[in-house]
Design a protein around this nucleic acid. Sequence first.
DNA 1: AAACTTTTCGTAAAATATACGCTAAGCAAA
DNA 2: TTTGCTTAGCGTATATTTTACGAAAAGTTT
Lengths: 245, 245
Amino acid sequence: MSIQTNQSLSVDCVLFGFDGTSLRVLLIERPAYNNLERMKLPGSMIHQSETMLEAAVRVLESVTGMKIHYLKQLEIFSDPKRLRSDELEWIRQKYQIQTERVVTVGYYALVKLDRHLLAHVSRKGGRWVPVDEIQRLAMDHKLILSSALAMLCREMLLSPIAFELLPKKFTISELQRLFEAVLGVELDNRNFRKKMFSSGFLVATGEKQKGVAHKPAEYFIFDRSAYRRAVKEKLRMGFIDNWRY
Amino acid sequence: MSIQTNQSLSVDCVLFGFDGTSLRVLLIERPAYNNLERMKLPGSMIHQSETMLEAAVRVLESVTGMKIHYLKQLEIFSDPKRLRSDELEWIRQKYQIQTERVVTVGYYALVKLDRHLLAHVSRKGGRWVPVDEIQRLAMDHKLILSSALAMLCREMLLSPIAFELLPKKFTISELQRLFEAVLGVELDNRNFRKKMFSSGFLVATGEKQKGVAHKPAEYFIFDRSAYRRAVKEKLRMGFIDNWRY
DNA sequence: AAACTTTTCGTAAAATATACGCTAAGCAAA
DNA sequence: TTTGCTTAGCGTATATTTTACGAAAAGTTT
């Protein structure tokens, strides 16, 4: 029943990207050590004078080389037995600390994939792996990933995070494919389009696709301020019109 | 840039109850110490071999004397400057530990208020304070409370947590008043009733109010398995019928 | 008995969601 | 050049849900 004094705190980050077809997660390949799983989530122990969030930002900006715009906390993973002794030993060696227990906070983040980012990440030993190809991960990182996926699905239905994963200009079909990939459903393209346009936060650019073997689609952009206006409008009008038991 | 080794981990819990009119939070009055705020949230340092969640359960079951059925994690509060030095000193004294930094995890929980619970809590130095009467709290507990309130609102619209706060048997009006208290809105009683009945998880008991100066209302109970069936039904049918941008 | 209060049942209109037909615009193959 | 294939994009009819209220019912208080 004694107070714990020799524990450490870390962050582990699930960074999602969308390549137009499938949802991908950024994984780090760590050097071989005994028989430990090689692939892990990007993470770090926290430093003296930073918050958990700042630690997560540090980890992600280091591996991507860019500013992270969407980053949220998941859960805290504090099972005293969450790390096997060999994993704990790896951590002691890597960070040169004596610790009996590592409590970690999961974060999930979204980025727009582009050539520049892909290049930077691969220089840093990172790999963008499609979520449905991930079988095993180091430590309890598979658990953290599951938590992130659940959060992503939930958020996708409630706030406009899809646009964090798409390029600035995108077609309605790309948007729809993203929804289908994340939620694992098929959607009717005509109704999907109607729903997306109904709130008026998609702005036509006038530009169209080129070189596609079918009618070229128009590119749209997401107007965040129009979105905020629409949300306010809804709140003024309906009371609880958006609950769903 | 060094790794933190001398920090501690704690939990702080926001326990909500509903007295039929207003939403209340359980606060603890701590002994006077310098000029620190007296009222704080129930909390504790974590022990060697328990998870954060287990620590929260321990704290809440100790102060209420009963099993806690609804308990969820909020956020982690890790600002290195979240505690003033006098608050930190208080913690060092209370727990007899040398620590430079206390990172805390917020939890929020729901209970049904009854006479028995009220009595037990007041023996333990706890007080049920209406949320809108809380001006200041110790440390950053006001911040944790805000986080809990935001979470409560969000959850109230998405899952049937209202029934965790009401007695087993309740009238539709009581249910409505709870919604109004938590969300801070006024609702049309006829439409509220329709909405609540539409999913079919409210079961009539046949019992009615007695001694009220108007038409007596019937008591209902929440049928959790009917609720689960209704949710499944919805998922089979609609695709994304419950997103709300 | 009249007044008052809250419960409870209804109903009509408005707004949203769903299912699906059909044309448009590009490329590729014939 | 024509035919076929594919996805984009428009429209419409029907079903479902939400919203705004009217009014009766069942008690207590005056």
